[in-house]
Simulated scan of single mutants.
Amino acid sequence: MNKESLSKLSNEKLLKKHTAAKTMVWLLAIVLTGCLLFFIYVSIQDGFTPLVAVPLALSTIIPLNVKNMNTLKKELDSRK
């Protein structure tokens, strides 16, 4: 999202987008942590499995969402 499109949104829409982004970051982090722990447990029980790489690869999405969330927060703070 660029600054121009954010400036056109209302405060309520920005707040909803920020809340949704925050929720998605937490949910994704919790799910990926659970998957990582489960795959590590499976690896310990049955031997190494390449599925351990999946949560690690998908965790690169989290910083992008955090950056988006921070951009939304800055726009909300600039309007106050």
Score class of each variant (00 low, 15 high):
residue 17 K to I: 07
residue 38 F to R: 06
residue 27 L to F: 15
residue 34 G to M: 00
residue 55 P to D: 04
residue 38 F to S: 04
residue 63 P to C: 02
residue 30 I to D: 05
residue 24 M to F: 12
residue 16 K to Y: 14
residue 49 T to K: 07
residue 41 Y to D: 06
residue 73 K to G: 02
residue 20 A to M: 08
residue 14 L to M: 02
residue 21 A to F: 00
residue 63 P to T: 05
residue 56 L to T: 06
residue 74 K to G: 10
residue 24 M to Q: 14
residue 43 S to D: 00
residue 70 N to Y: 01
residue 10 S to K: 04
residue 11 N to D: 11
residue 9 L to W: 03
residue 35 C to H: 10
residue 41 Y to M: 06
residue 13 K to N: 14
residue 56 L to K: 07
residue 6 L to R: 01
residue 38 F to E: 03
residue 39 F to L: 04
residue 55 P to K: 02
residue 25 V to M: 00
residue 36 L to W: 01
residue 55 P to I: 03
residue 2 N to C: 05
residue 60 T to S: 13
residue 80 K to R: 05
residue 45 Q to K: 07
residue 80 K to L: 04
residue 54 V to S: 07
residue 59 S to R: 08
residue 55 P to A: 05
residue 44 I to L: 12
residue 32 L to M: 07
residue 53 A to F: 13
residue 55 P to G: 04
residue 62 I to D: 01
residue 70 N to S: 01
residue 39 F to S: 01
residue 14 L to A: 06
residue 71 T to N: 09
residue 61 I to W: 04
residue 18 H to Y: 08
residue 12 E to D: 12
residue 7 S to L: 15
residue 34 G to A: 03
residue 80 K to H: 04
residue 56 L to W: 08
residue 77 D to K: 10
residue 24 M to E: 07
residue 16 K to R: 13
residue 46 D to I: 11
residue 29 A to S: 10
residue 45 Q to A: 14
residue 16 K to P: 04
residue 7 S to F: 14
residue 38 F to Q: 02
residue 28 L to T: 10
residue 16 K to D: 11
residue 7 S to P: 12
residue 12 E to S: 08
residue 24 M to R: 06
residue 4 E to F: 15
residue 57 A to P: 12
residue 74 K to M: 11
residue 76 L to K: 00
residue 23 T to Q: 10
residue 58 L to M: 12
residue 71 T to F: 04
residue 65 N to W: 04
residue 6 L to C: 02
residue 47 G to W: 06
residue 58 L to K: 05
residue 4 E to C: 11
residue 15 L to H: 14
residue 2 N to Q: 12
residue 28 L to H: 10
residue 54 V to C: 07
residue 19 T to F: 07
residue 28 L to F: 09
residue 31 V to P: 10
residue 27 L to A: 15
residue 46 D to R: 13
residue 33 T to D: 02
residue 34 G to C: 05
residue 66 V to R: 05
residue 24 M to D: 09
residue 23 T to V: 11
residue 78 S to I: 10
residue 48 F to D: 03
residue 80 K to D: 06
residue 64 L to P: 02
residue 26 W to I: 15
residue 80 K to P: 00
residue 21 A to G: 02
residue 71 T to A: 10
residue 2 N to R: 08
residue 71 T to V: 06
residue 78 S to A: 11
residue 45 Q to P: 08
residue 64 L to Q: 13
residue 6 L to G: 04
residue 24 M to P: 03
residue 52 V to A: 03
residue 74 K to A: 14
residue 33 T to N: 03
residue 75 E to I: 06
residue 40 I to K: 01
residue 70 N to T: 00
residue 42 V to I: 15
residue 1 M to V: 10
residue 51 L to A: 13
residue 17 K to A: 09
residue 74 K to N: 12
residue 20 A to C: 12
residue 15 L to P: 07
residue 26 W to K: 15
residue 48 F to I: 11
residue 44 I to G: 05
residue 30 I to L: 12
residue 29 A to P: 03
residue 67 K to N: 09
residue 10 S to R: 01
residue 63 P to Y: 02
residue 65 N to E: 07
residue 49 T to F: 03
residue 15 L to Q: 14
residue 65 N to C: 11
residue 66 V to P: 01
residue 53 A to L: 15
residue 43 S to P: 04
residue 12 E to W: 12
residue 10 S to L: 02
residue 39 F to T: 03
